[in-house]
């Protein structure tokens, strides 16, 4: 990626971030529910069927945050290492 492309990408990214923040500020009262709630579950409830809890419910207290922390430390390191292998180290993949 050359310098001009990098600058263009940065400008576009900054504009997108600014647009999202503006939109969030302008719609403070919006719930931002997912379409699973606003569409899928709404129609299901109208038809007499309700979503039930998942069989393994990890969404309890801070358990999910703790697992996220552990996995982030290990996974971030490993992912960075293999990204380098696949996208930059041309000796590794001779396709």
């Amino acid at each position: 990626m050359n310098k001009k492309m990098k600058q263009t990408a940065l400008v576009i990214f900054s504009l997108c971030v600014a647009a999202v923040f503006m939109a969030l500020l302008m719609t403070k009262d919006t719930q931002w529910s997912g379409v699973d709630e606003t569409v899928v579950e709404k129609f299901a409830e109208e038809a007499g069927r309700e979503a039930r809890d998942p069989y393994i419910n990890t969404d309890q207290g801070d358990i999910l945050l703790f697992v996220f922390l552990l996995a982030g430390v290990a996974g971030g390191f490993v992912l960075g290492y293999y990204y380098r292998d696949v996208f930059t180290d041309k000796r590794v993949l001779e396709l």
Partner: peptide, 21 residues
């Protein structure tokens, strides 16, 4: 490991049809 990173601290919300529907 990359999959594990995605134990996101909140539910993602979308086309996936939830359990029991």
């Amino acid at each position: 490991a990359f999959f594990l990173i995605c134990f996101l601290p909140d539910k993602a919300q979308a086309m996936h049809i939830s359990e029991g529907i």
